[in-house]
Simulated assay, not measured.
Amino acid sequence: MMNLKYASLFESFNIGKGIRLKNRIVMAPMTNFSSNPDGTVSDAEVSYYKRRSNGVGMVITACTYVTVNGKGFHGEFGGDRDEMIPSLHRLASAIKKRGAKAILQIFHGGREVPPELVPNGDIVSASNIPSNGEGKPVPRALTETEIESIIRDFGETTRRAIKAGFDGVEIHGANGYLIQQFFSPHSNRRNDRWGGTLEKRLTFPLAVVDEIKKVVFAYAKEPFLVGYRFSPEEPETPGITMADTLELVDALTKKGLDYLHVSLMDFWSKPKRGIEDARSRIQIIQDRVGDRVPLIGVGSIYSADDALRALETGVPLIALGRELIIDPDWVQKVEQGRESEIVTKINKNHQHELEVPNPLWEKIIHSPGWFPGVE
C-alpha cells in the first residue's frame, strides 16, 4: 500500500484540452543513440520505452529530426519524411498501450550537428558562429528561404506525429540546438527580422510554435498537446541570461501552449546572471508562469522524497530522466509502498534487466559523472 506521504505524486492532472495524465510523473526526453541506420526506431528502443511506460503519466521521447540536415546524433530516429510514419507509429503505440501519454520531441541540431551526419557536411545555424570549444565547425548562416522551409518542416513532422498516433509534440528549444541558437545572442548575430534585438531573436522560436499550432488545428481530430522545452541560461558571453529567459517565458505563455519544460541537470540550481534572486531557476520561472501554463521541472531527482520536495515548490509535473534508466520500476515502487527499494545508482551488471540498448549503455558506462554509480 502506498505511503500517503507521496499521494500528491499520484494525483491526476488535466493538461491541454481534454487530456488527463494519471499522475504527476513524466519520463524526460533522453537521447539513446540506438535507432536503425535508416532512421527508423529499432527493436531495442521499443523495448526500452515499453519497460518505462507502465508507471509514468507521460513519456517524452528522444528528439527526432525534422529535416535531413538537422540530424544531431548517431542512432537518432527520424521524422523528416512520410516514410517514417510507420516507425513513429510503432513507438507511439508501444508507449500508449502501457497507459502513458506519448509525446514526440522534435528538433533541428543546427550548429551542433556532426558534419558526417548531414549531406556534404553542410552545417547551418542562425549565423556563422561556431560553438565554443576547440575544433568546432563553422556553420553557414541560413538564408531567409531556408529558415521558412525549416519552420514548415517542424509543422510537417507534427503532422506525421499526429498521423502516427502521438498525443503531442514537444518543441526542443533547449540544449543549444537550432531553436535556441536563434534565441541566443551568442549564436545569432543577424541584423534582419530574425535577429538583432531580443524581440527579433524570438521571431524564429515563435514562428515554429505558430506553424505547429496551425498544423494541429488542421489535422488533429483528438486532443493533441504542444509543449516547449528551453534551457534557462548559457555559459557563453554573450549568451542567454535568466532575464532573457523570463522574456522568452512571457512570450511563450501568450501562445496558448499546453506546457513548458525547463531543461536542467539540477532542479535546485540557481541563476548565474541576469537577475538577483536567491531562489532556484525553476521556482523563479514557476512564479513568472503562475497558472497560465503548466510547467515541467526536472534535474537530478532520484528518490521519492526528491520528487515530493520538487512537487511541493508548486511545479505541477516532475520529470525523471536518468533515474528511470537506473530504475524503470520507480513509479510502481512508490505506488506500492516500496520506495525504500528504489535503486539510485546504476549497476554495471544489470543492462539486460534494465533493457537499455547497447549504444546508450556504452555511453553511460564510459561517461564518469553522468550517472550516479559510474566512477
Rank of each mutant, 00 (worst) to 15 (best):
T344Y: 09
K272M: 05
N349G: 05
P368D: 09
R338Q: 13
D306S: 06
E362P: 04
N349K: 15
D266I: 10
R322G: 01
L324H: 04
L317R: 01
W361I: 01
S340R: 12
H352T: 15
I342F: 04
L264I: 08
R279M: 11
L260H: 10
T313S: 13
G314K: 05
G299C: 12
P316T: 13
N358V: 11
M265L: 09
H261D: 07
I301N: 00
K348H: 12
G299M: 11
Y302M: 04
A310E: 02
Q336Y: 10
H350K: 15
L295S: 03
D306Y: 09
R279S: 13
E323K: 12
G274H: 06
D327P: 03
A304F: 02
Q351Y: 04
G337W: 05
V262M: 06
V374E: 02
L320H: 07
R322Y: 08
E341R: 08
Q286G: 11
P316M: 10
E276L: 09
S269W: 10
V293S: 05
S269C: 13
Y302G: 00
Q283G: 06
P368V: 14
V374R: 02
S263T: 08
Q351M: 10
E362G: 09
P271N: 05
S280K: 03
E323Y: 00
P294C: 12
L320I: 10
A304Y: 02
R292F: 04
G290A: 09
R279V: 12
L354R: 12
Q332Y: 11
A319V: 08
I284S: 04
G373P: 02
V315C: 15
S300W: 01
F371Y: 15
W330E: 02
L260F: 15
E312L: 13
V262G: 01
D327Y: 10
K272I: 06
S269F: 05
I365E: 03
L324S: 03
G290Y: 07
G373Y: 11
Q351E: 06
E335P: 00
P372G: 10
G297P: 00
G321A: 09
R273P: 00
M265T: 12
R338F: 06
V262W: 04
V331T: 14
G297F: 08
W361Q: 00
E353F: 07
I326Q: 03
S367H: 14
I318R: 02
G297E: 02
G321C: 07
V331S: 10
R279W: 12
S340G: 10
K348Y: 07
G373M: 12
K348I: 15
V298T: 12
Q332N: 13
L311I: 13
I282G: 01
W330P: 00
D287Q: 15
D305G: 03
M265F: 10
E362M: 14
E312Q: 14
G369I: 07
S367C: 09
L320M: 14
D287Y: 09
G314L: 09
T313R: 08
G297D: 03
A319C: 08
G297W: 05
I364M: 14
A319M: 05
K333L: 07
I325Q: 00
